[in-house]
Amino acid sequence: MITLTINEQKHEVEVDPSTPLLWVLRDKLAMTGTKFGCGIAQCGACTVHINGMAARACVTPVSMVTDAKITTIEGLSTDGSHPVQAAWVAHEVPQCGYCQPGMMMAAAALLTQKPNPTDADIDAAITNICRCGTYPRVRAAIHSIAKT
């Protein structure tokens, strides 16, 4: 039995300790906001926060995060009021939206560490893939939060 702290709630799950956090979230806990895109930490669709830092859940064995504070898109806010969510709505960022939970988690972590990120900071921190091509709006939305 593994105990995880996700979105400030304790969850006990019976899984192989090598199971990636992504699949524990999706298949064991039915928290499907965190997405599967590539399975090899290339696309970032599975980005969550581990102790406030952006991390790729598809390559994070669940055994590594038993003592950590895990935040998923479902925990960013319960009502869509997180500044990143509000900015994403205001800038109409999502198109298909599949990559956006990961994109937003990466943006939220960046803004925690650097409240006024430069374009170069954004380039370095946001390495998620969006096939719809929402990057200009992601950038604009992040800058709009920094300004507020």
């Binding site: 499907t32 869509g80 709505v89």
Partner: peptide, 21 residues
């Protein structure tokens, strides 16, 4: 006009087939 499905998408709501449980 704001796209109607965006608020659900920024919440990570299960709007995709792969999210069916």
């Amino acid at each position: 006009k704001s796209r109607v499905e965006i608020p659900d998408k920024v919440m990570g709501k299960p709007v995709f087939a792969i999210d069916v449980r």
